[in-house]
Design a protein around this nucleic acid. Structure first.
Lengths: 320, 320
DNA sequence: CTGTTAGCGCCTTCAT
DNA sequence: ATGAAGGCGCTAACAG
C-alpha cells in the first residue's frame, strides 16, 4: 500500500483489490503514533486574535499565508488559543497538542515559555523577537524600526509636525514591534530637528469602540494634522469617526496605516500605508519551523524592508 | 497522573515528584492512539474561504464561533483545505486527518462525499442542506427563504420595484442558501403583485474586483433603485463603487446586505442587513457533531429565523 | 491499594 | 518476494 519497491506488481494489485473490497482505511492515528509525525503545525494565537478577526487584516493575511504554505509542504494548521484566564499557561496547552511544531503569534506569551519549550524539545517559531540574545534566532519578524521611520519621514516631508502615533496595547504593554516602530519614528523626528514629545504616542486597546472614542477625545481637543496608526481595526475606527464628523481625509488630516496593502486599498479613501511582506515572512517562518522539526541546521534570515505605499490619505500640510 | 481515585495521596505525590524531576511529558500521540480520541475537529473549508478571508465577515464569525465553542468543549480546530486542483477529493484529504469529526463548510463539496463519509463511519456536519432527503439531518443551516423574504419585503414596503438581487456563484452554480433566498425574494414579489424578471437576479463571483466591475456595468445602463447583496465582499465593492462615483446611499440607491450585523455596523454608511445568528448555529453544529462522535442519538434543530437590522442604507423610493 | 501485563495498528526488521 | 514478529507509549484490566 505504501508503494514499496519490494512488492511484485500483481501482489500489490491483489492488496489494492482487497483494500477496495473491504473498504479498508488505514488508521491515521496509528501511523502518527508509529512514525512520530502528525504533519500538523500548531498555530498559537491569542483569544484577541480571534475576537478581533473582522478587521485585523494583518492576522488574516498571516493566517492565509501560513495555511497555504503549510498545505504546500504537506502540513495542516491546528488552531490553538490559550485561555490564560483559565489558569493554564500556553506551555500546558501546547504540550498537550498533537503537532510536530508550533508557530507562536500570540503577543501575550509569557517570558518563561521559551525555556520550557526548549527543555521539552518542542520545535517552535515566534514572529516577534521576544529576547535580545543573539542565539535566539527562532523567530521571523519584520523590520519595524524601518517601518516607523519611513512613515514618519514621509509625513515630515509633507510638512506635518503635529503627528500622533497610535499604537495598540495588550495588557498595558506595547508590543515589541510597536516599540521598534516608535524607535524609527523618533529617529525620523530627530533627523528633521523636531523635538519628540510624549503626547505624540497615543496608546489604545485595539478594539473598534475604544478606538473610536479615543479619536473623539483627540479631535475635541488639540487636533493633529497627521496620524500614524499601527493597527488596522483602529484605522477603520479613525476613518469611521472622520466620516461621521465631516473631517476630511486627507484635506483635514493625513492618515498612514500599517498592514497589508490590499486591505487598505479597499478602504475609502484609499489609504497610504506601510506594507510588510507577510507572505514572505510566513513562508520563512514555516521553513524555519520545518528545519527545526527535521533537526536541520538553522539558516536565519534578515527581515525584508517594509515599503511605503502612497495613496490618497496623505497630503501636504497647509495649516497655520 | 490521571487523577485516579485508586491511588494513595502520597504515592501520587511520589509520582508527581518523579514527573517533575525527570521532566517527563506524556506522549500525546500515544494517548490519542490508545484512546482513539484526538480531541480535534477538522474544519473543512474551500481555498476560496481562505483567499477571500479579508471581507468575508460571515466566514470570520463562523470561524470565531466554532473555535470558541470547540475550545469550550475541550477540542481544537484543524484547518483543512482541499486543493481540488491537485486531484485529491475532499474524501481523500479527510480520511487522512487525525480528527474525531469534521465540520464541512465548503460550498464545493462533491455529491459523492456524503456516502463515502457514511460508509467510512466518519462523523461530520454540514452547514448547508446538500440533500433533500429528510433522513439527512447532519447539517445545521439557516432559514434563508425567510432571509430573502424579509429583505425583499422591506424594500417593497419602501416602494422599490427596480430591485436587483446580487448573488455569488461558485463554479457557475448558485449556492444552496442563495437558491433559498431567491425563493423568499420571489415570494415577496408575488405578495406585492410585482412580476419577477430574470434580470432581477445578478450573479457574480464574490471577489472584490469582479464585483466592482459588475456594479460599474450595472450603473452605466439601467439603474436599479435598490440592491440586495448576498455576499459581504461584494457589498464592500458596491459601497466603494458608489463612493468613487458620487452615488449616494441611500438617497440614490438603497442597499441591504446579508451577514453579521457587527460587520455592517462598521461600514459607512451603516448598513441595513439581514442578520443570522451564526454563533447559535455554530454552537448547534458542534453539539451535533459531538453527539455523532459519541454515538448519541441526534436531536435535529429548527434553524433560527434571521432578523432584519434596519440602519442607514435604505430609504423610501421617491424616484419617478 | 499497588504492580504487572496485554494490546491498540502500524511499520521495520528479520527469517524464510 | 513474501510472511512473521517486535515494539512504539499509553491505559485498562487483572493479579497480588
Amino acid at each position: 500500500m505504501n508503494d514499496s519497491s519490494l512488492v511484485k506488481p500483481r501482489t500489490r494489485q491483489r492488496v489494492l483489490d482487497a483494500v477496495q473490497s473491504l473498504g479498508y482505511i488505514p488508521n491515521k492515528t496509528a501511523r502518527v503514533f508509529k512514525s512520530g509525525r502528525s504533519h500538523i503545525l500548531g498555530l498559537v494565537i491569542s483569544t484577541q486574535h480571534i475576537s478581533e478577526l473582522a478587521f485585523n487584516a494583518g492576522f488574516q493575511s498571516r493566517f492565509k499565508a501560513l495555511t497555504e504554505k503549510a498545505h504546500s509542504e504537506g502540513y495542516n494548521i491546528l488552531i490553538i488559543t490559550s485561555a490564560d484566564a483559565e489558569g493554564r499557561s500556553y506551555f500546558e496547552v501546547i504540550k498537550d497538542q498533537v503537532a510536530d511544531g508550533f508557530i507562536i503569534l500570540s503577543p501575550s506569551v509569557n517570558e518563561a515559555l521559551t525555556p520550557l519549550l526548549e527543555e521539552a524539545g518542542i520545535p517552535y517559531v515566534y514572529n516577534m523577537k521576544y529576547s535580545n540574545r543573539p542565539e535566539d534566532c527562532y523567530y521571523v519578524s519584520s523590520d519595524d524600526v524601518e517601518g516607523g521611520y519611513i512613515a514618519a519621514k514621509y509625513l515630515l516631508d509633507l510638512n506635518h509636525t503635529e503627528i500622533r502615533f497610535i499604537v495598540g496595547i495588550v495588557k498595558g504593554n506595547f508590543m515589541p514591534f510597536n516599540v521598534d516602530r516608535i524607535v524609527g519614528f523618533k529617529r525620523a523626528l530627530a533627523e528633521y530637528g523636531i523635538a519628540f514629545r510624549e503626547e505624540m504616542i497615543v496608546s489604545v486597546p485595539g478594539q473598534m469602540e475604544e478606538s473610536y472614542t479615543m479619536f473623539h477625545h483627540m479631535f475635541q481637543t488639540r487636533r493633529p494634522t497627521a496620524l500614524l496608526i499601527s493597527n488596522e481595526t483602529t484605522t477603520v475606527a479613525a476613518l469611521n469617526y472622520f466620516h461621521d464628523h465631516g473631517i476630511r481625509v486627507p484635506q483635514d488630516v493625513s492618515v498612514i496605516g500599517f498592514g497589508p496593502s490590499e486591505f487598505f486599498r479597499h478602504l475609502r479613501p484609499n489609504l497610504t500605508n506601510v506594507s510588510y511582506d507577510i507572505a514572505w515572512s510566513s513562508n520563512k517562518q514555516v521553513d524555519l519551523l520545518l528545519q527545526r522539526i527535521e533537526g536541520q541546521p538553522i539558516t536565519p534570515e534578515r527581515p525584508k524592508k517594509p515599503e511605503l505605499i502612497i495613496r490618497d490619505s496623505t497630503a501636504r500640510n497647509v495649516q497655520h
